[in-house]
Simulated assay, not measured.
Amino acid sequence: MPREDHAGCFHASRTMNGRTEVQRAWRVTAGTRHVASVIARRLGGEVYEVGNSLNDEWEVLTESSAVEILVNDISGNGITFTLPGEVEVGEFSFSSEMWNPVEISRIPVGSPESVRCGMALKAVEFTTRTGLTFLYILPSIEILTSGV
């Protein structure tokens, strides 16, 4: 959910025609065109004005399923982070109930410094015995360095 104190939110899905559509690349919503333009420059994609969400009026359907981040905080199923080299743009957030609890628990909390991580959307596909194919898009996070 967008928050006024964040520059934007990363999403793994979107709603189209009343149905949830999973994304293979990050969708980012932002409160300003400037922030959306920074995301488009870093992750590829086009900036769109949406104007239909609570606080975020701009959206980027990126071309990237992975992003390098500096984790600032972990709260429940959500994280807040900044982008390396773009800290002045502000904090972003991402929340998911699909996190691997082991991955998220490895990130040191309470550190006075940010932790550099790679955050990605990973496609997991399987076929049932009856021939139905299912695709899940799961968020993944990996510590790259600590104490940046």
Results as ranks from 00 to 15, higher is better:
residue 57 E to R: 14
residue 87 V to A: 09
residue 107 I to H: 03
residue 84 P to G: 01
residue 120 A to S: 15
residue 143 I to R: 04
residue 105 S to F: 02
residue 12 A to Y: 06
residue 46 E to M: 14
residue 64 S to C: 11
residue 88 E to R: 03
residue 144 L to E: 11
residue 46 E to W: 07
residue 82 T to Y: 01
residue 148 V to Q: 09
residue 117 C to N: 02
residue 111 S to R: 08
residue 49 E to A: 13
residue 20 T to N: 10
residue 40 A to C: 11
residue 54 L to T: 09
residue 70 L to M: 11
residue 46 E to T: 11
residue 90 G to V: 09
residue 10 F to P: 01
residue 56 D to Y: 10
residue 25 A to N: 15
residue 91 E to W: 00
residue 73 D to I: 03
residue 135 L to D: 02
residue 17 N to L: 10
residue 42 R to A: 03
residue 10 F to Q: 04
residue 89 V to R: 02
residue 17 N to T: 00
residue 8 G to N: 01
residue 22 V to L: 14
residue 67 V to N: 07
residue 7 A to G: 12
residue 52 N to D: 13
residue 2 P to A: 15
residue 146 S to I: 13
residue 23 Q to I: 05
residue 59 E to Y: 01
residue 21 E to S: 08
residue 5 D to N: 15
residue 33 R to P: 03
residue 119 M to L: 13
residue 134 F to T: 07
residue 104 I to N: 07
residue 142 E to K: 10
residue 125 E to F: 00
residue 127 T to P: 01
residue 88 E to N: 07
residue 99 W to N: 00
residue 84 P to V: 04
residue 41 R to S: 13
residue 105 S to H: 00
residue 28 V to I: 15
residue 55 N to V: 05
residue 96 S to L: 08
residue 21 E to T: 08
residue 93 S to C: 12
residue 106 R to A: 11
residue 46 E to C: 10
residue 62 T to M: 06
residue 46 E to D: 09
residue 109 V to C: 05
residue 110 G to W: 06
residue 128 T to A: 14
residue 53 S to N: 11
residue 3 R to N: 15
residue 139 P to N: 08
residue 73 D to Y: 04
